[in-house]
Amino acid sequence: MKKFRGIYLKNDKEIGLLREANRFVSLILDMLGESVKSGISTMDLEDLAAKACEDFGVEPAFKGYHGFPFVLCCSVNEEIVHGFPSKERILKDGDIISIDMGVVYKGFVGDSARTFAVGSIPESTQKLLDVTYESLMKGIEQARPGNNLYEISRAVQVHAESNGFGVVRRFVGHGIGRNMHEKPEVPNFVPAGLPGVTLKTGMVIAIEPMVTVGSYEVEILSDNWTAVTKDRKLSAHFEHSIAITSDGPIILSLS
Rank of each mutant, 00 (worst) to 15 (best):
T229N: 04
G6I: 03
N179D: 14
L18G: 09
S215G: 04
C74W: 02
I220G: 07
L149D: 12
H240P: 05
E78K: 15
R5Y: 09
L221H: 10
G94Q: 09
I251A: 15
Y216E: 02
R114D: 08
H174Q: 03
I97G: 06
C73H: 15
T226N: 06
D231N: 12
G67H: 14
S135P: 08
V158D: 10
E79W: 11
T42F: 04
M137A: 01
V186A: 03
E123P: 10
I176K: 00
S86K: 12
S255R: 00
V186D: 07
F84I: 00
I7M: 09
K51P: 02
I80K: 10
D47Y: 06
R144Y: 13
A52Q: 12
A61P: 11
A50V: 12
A21C: 02
I40R: 14
C73K: 13
P85T: 05
T132M: 08
A160M: 03
L48R: 13
G175N: 09
G146V: 01
I96R: 05
G64W: 08
L27Y: 14
G202D: 04
I140D: 09
V204A: 12
D111M: 12
P187W: 10
I121L: 09
H237E: 03
I90P: 03
D231P: 13
Q157N: 04
P195L: 07
V218Y: 13
D93G: 06
I99W: 14
P60E: 04
C73P: 00
G102S: 10
R169W: 14
K87V: 03
E20Y: 04
L45S: 00
A236W: 07
D100Y: 14
E123T: 05
L29P: 00
G202Y: 05
N179E: 14
P187F: 07
V168D: 11
V204M: 07
E219T: 15
G193W: 04
A160D: 05
M31L: 11
D247G: 15
I96F: 07
S86G: 10
V197N: 09
S112R: 09
E34C: 01
I40T: 01
V104K: 15
S26F: 11
